[in-house]
Simulated assay, not measured.
Amino acid sequence: MKKLAVLVIHGIEVDDPGLFDTALHKLHEHFGASVRSAPEDALVVETVNWASVLEGAEKDFLARQGTPDAEGYWKSLYDGVRAVNQGRESALVPLMLRMMRPSVRGMDLHYPGLRWLVVHFVGDIIAYQSNPSDPDVYTGIHRKVAEALGRLRARAGDTAPLCVISHSLGSVIASNYFYDLQAQRLHGRDIIETTVAAAQGNSPLERGETLSRFYTLGTPMALWSLRYPRAELDKPVHVPAPELERHHPGLGGEWINFHDDDDVFAWPLQPLSAAYREAVKDHAVRLAGPLFSWTPLVHPFYWSDDSVMEPIGQSLAEAWRQLGVTPTVAA
């Protein structure tokens, strides 16, 4: 049976083995409601847990700012975020109360919880920026993407259609990664760092040739345009990839950008340029929840919301139905 390869990339996060549990449950639920086959027979899913690249450095940074007495407090914040990751909106209440404590034993700095939050949110963004003189973080994260694509290829096949679901900073990582692949493949620009290139396989899937669907959730990608104030933003990632037609004639693809108007981190992408208006479908959603759905605190809950995961599941189901009646052409 033909399968879809689904790559899932998180945004700013702590290292959490259960991060994607709710998202994958919702994805399978809504995909299964649209097709007659079991989701496990049609979807091969791999996740990119890139938080581990930065986790050690961030913990060392925080440890230097306090004493061992603060370790229990830091652990309570990590545990709180992991509870929120399960889609439990109510878990934000005790987490925010802990973060708002003005002082903690073992820490001289005021509001250590909010500082912890800044380290993870702002620190991740700063660390990810490409630095030619010391590219360890940028390349380390991109190696994680390459390794996940390798696992997808092994399970789904060399030419399986690739669908990418990404949240927040993860959408920027995904866009950069596949842009670099396309720039090298289509325009001969050798911009991929050596260790990343060494981790990349040579199958059509791993080269990004089968990229068919791209879903961005709560993306701050529009803010990256501020880095290029005099450049025309006319080169978004090609979705579907130009080579997809060769591997799966007629399958096509789409880029859907989900954003909640109350989420100050999320921006529509069509206003960036005519090229983005053509490439992206901006899809406004209203994330549900009785406590924080009307505030910027909705940002973590795209993964667990039916208004997001249902259309993604339906879109993947349509792709799988098309795949079932579309002949595959050898590369």
Results as ranks from 00 to 15, higher is better:
4 L>H: 08
9 I>H: 06
11 G>W: 04
23 A>F: 15
25 H>E: 13
26 K>R: 13
28 H>K: 13
28 H>G: 12
31 F>Q: 01
32 G>S: 03
33 A>C: 09
33 A>L: 09
35 V>H: 07
36 R>K: 10
42 A>E: 10
42 A>G: 08
47 T>G: 08
51 A>N: 00
52 S>P: 00
52 S>M: 01
55 E>N: 11
57 A>G: 03
61 F>M: 01
71 E>M: 10
72 G>V: 11
78 Y>S: 05
81 V>M: 09
83 A>L: 06
86 Q>I: 08
90 S>Q: 03
94 P>R: 13
96 M>E: 12
105 R>A: 15
114 L>R: 03
115 R>Y: 11
120 H>Y: 03
129 Q>A: 12
130 S>W: 07
130 S>T: 09
131 N>F: 09
131 N>M: 13
135 P>T: 12
141 I>D: 04
157 G>M: 13
162 L>C: 10
174 A>M: 01
178 F>T: 11
181 L>I: 05
187 H>L: 15
196 V>I: 07
201 G>T: 10
202 N>C: 08
205 L>F: 03
206 E>D: 06
209 E>W: 02
219 T>L: 10
221 M>G: 00
223 L>N: 08
227 R>K: 14
231 A>G: 07
232 E>R: 13
236 P>W: 03
242 P>G: 04
243 E>S: 11
249 P>Q: 02
257 N>V: 02
257 N>C: 03
257 N>E: 01
269 L>M: 02
270 Q>K: 13
275 A>C: 00
278 E>R: 15
280 V>Y: 04
292 F>H: 04
293 S>G: 04
294 W>S: 06
305 D>I: 09
311 P>V: 12
312 I>A: 13
316 L>G: 04
317 A>H: 11
